[in-house]
Design a protein around this nucleic acid. Structure first.
Lengths: 361, 361
DNA sequence: ACATCTGATGGAATCGTTTCCATGCAGCGG
DNA sequence: CCGCTGCATGGAAACGATTCCATCAGATGT
């Protein structure tokens, strides 16, 4: 029970393999030949092997998808978006879960290289040390949901910093409609599909300050630096540094951070959780410390996951379109990272439910 | 900037390509040659291209993973398990989301065939018409979480049914410790890694009857027929058919089913939801109809998803080890489906929280 | 000392496809 | 009528690895 090869089709149709290949991949051929080949191919149920093609073209079709954690519903949504687009295009997707760890991410990129997969969608955890080599090696990379961490501010101003080289968040241009950060690099730039964090966080902060809150905390992951930046910006000069707390990706770490935050600053009256896992941890920690939501503390969480509505009280959230982000990223990477919009910003929406109330203390 | 090939290594080391290949894949070679080749390969940063190897071996490494929906946290956990095992083995994973639809599943299997991926882990949606061809074509298939739908009972008893051919749930053997269903077929059988649904559902039912409940409803998806069967079994002869309701995979369908159930049988006092999406829908529907949990209706949900604890009341759940199921399935498929245990049953656990109370009406 | 065996080694075939190039045929303008 | 262009076509090379097989050196056995 052998596989049907192009040679079989060629023989059966009485033509050369070159002709079959041309017909099947839309090259030129006389109408009659084309018809005959097509008929024979259909009859033999011929399916070209991706193996041969890949080797010849020195590249594997499809795309890689690297994200921190499939257990996180938001990344599940994002993945579904990518898969939907890939399926529409008939392309396979190789998925890797990085655990939000730069080293694992680098390993996975290595595997993709080994597989000659040259299109990748990534929710990046690592910085330029991971992504610069990949891009230099000719990969088409599209970032989704966030950008690689920015380089730590260089001590000496003139140092060439690889991170800065690959990724620069351009906050220079005058803010205008649809203002988008641009990720640039010398000669190469990586497109990205992001939620409009600036607007999202700003809206949330305004909503909270509108309710009278002054001591608002932000609980985030280091990866989403744009959200923290937006938080600082929205609050103006009035940020107290110890109201900004970071956790790693894991649930334990998130819980520890939330709990620590509540204990270190019992005077805070509102929290913005920069991700649904963080939101989850915040609810848990608050409950553990007998803080009532929203009477004692108001909560706004990133991501409109299905259970936000089930919580009691139902959570007020900053919704971002996970599915769309994935879909658009996949489109972009399939188009080879197209020339036009280097960064796509998708809108967020503040969905008000019951987890925020007026300041009471 | 060319890729380093085995030929480059061979030249640089002053040996033939065959020798390099042998050294790298553990064949025989003199110690000195081996060392020299290894050194050169390391120095050149040579990474064998999976493309060449795949073509020669007529198979793509790694495995495919087909599941209904990555948005469902349980499948996210399962996927993480698979990815963890695959990463440990250095194998890539091609993921496809079927939307619980047999047709899409078949398409995705077709794509895997095209890619010459011959190991697949699947949470099956389609029946034998999808999986029999795949197995016949030489794929190593491992089912996870559930088995393909059983064939509708044939009208004429003697009909050869392809579904029955591939999959037969063997309930014949006397129940003994660690009793496992076996999926068999003529000459080929597909291993499976499942949660012990029988025990899980039985425990839940006993818990509920122990609380005084008599009219217990089961809300499930058609795919998990084993759970319904277990529900029937646990209840003995006392099952009322209209207390068993099915929904498709989608959230809308789940909500409709839950809402319909409550309205059709306002006298029911407890619900077992056969999946976390169904549980979510049940909570929503109950709230919409002003049914209080657990005063008016008790709820046990399948899957210990993180938000079960956040709900109010926190949900009593049947926990199944999603991560382990995925990991074990990946192990199995990498071992080529091994000879030994054709089906692995993993234990479930009833985690009692606050969503069940004594019967009140 | 000769035959035989063992183990290391390299050349070449192979996998299935795409693509370059040469060939042959027909049509057309000069 | 010749030569040129243009198109359809098929043979063969290429992609990068694995693996069969022949060769050769050295060791062993008689």
């Amino acid at each position: 029970m052998q596989r049907v090869t192009i040679k079989d089709v060629a023989e059966a149709a009485g033509v050369g393999v070159a002709t079959v290949s041309r017909v099947l991949s839309g090259g030129s051929a006389s109408p009659e030949t084309r018809e005959r080949v097509l008929a024979v191919a259909a009859q033999l149920d011929y399916r070209p092997s991706a193996l041969g093609r890949n080797l010849r073209q020195r590249r594997t079709g499809g795309m890689g998808l690297l994200l921190p954690d499939l257990t996180d519903s938001f990344y599940g949504q994002l993945a579904e978006g990518v898969l939907a687009c890939a399926r529409a295009a008939g392309e396979p997707v190789m998925v890797g879960s990085t655990g939000d760890d730069a080293e694992q991410e680098a390993e996975l990129v290595g595997m993709l290289v080994e597989q000659s997969v040259d299109r990748v969608i990534a929710v990046p955890s690592g910085g330029a040390d991971v992504w610069l080599p990949a891009v230099r090696a000719g990969m088409t990379v599209v970032f989704a949901d966030r950008l690689p961490p920015e380089p730590a501010p260089a001590a000496g101003g003139g140092d060439i910093d690889a991170l800065a080289d690959l990724m620069r968040l351009d906050g220079v241009a005058p803010p205008r409609q649809g203002e988008a950060p641009r990720t640039t690099a010398r000669g190469l730039d990586v497109p990205a599909v992001l939620a409009d964090d600036r607007a999202g966080v700003r809206t949330a902060v305004r909503y909270l300050t509108g309710l009278g809150h002054r001591r608002i905390a932000y609980l985030g992951v280091p990866g989403h630096s744009r959200r923290v930046a937006a938080f600082r910006e929205a609050l103006g000069g009035a940020v107290e540094e110890d109201l900004i707390v970071y956790a790693e990706g894991s649930r334990d770490s998130a819980y520890a951070a939330a709990s620590g935050l509540f204990q270190a600053r019992p005077d805070l009256t509102a929290v913005i959780a920069g991700g649904n896992v963080l939101g989850e941890a915040t609810v848990l920690a608050a409950r553990e410390l007998d803080l009532r939501v929203p009477q004692d503390v108001s909560l706004v969480m990133y991501d409109d996951v299905p259970w936000a509505e089930l919580c009691s009280p139902p959570l007020t959230v900053i919704a971002q379109p996970g599915h769309d982000i994935g879909y658009r990223a996949a489109e972009l990477v399939l188009r080879g990272g197209g020339r036009r919009p280097r960064t796509v910003l998708l809108p967020t929406e503040l969905i008000v439910r019951g987890s925020c109330g007026p300041r009471r203390r």
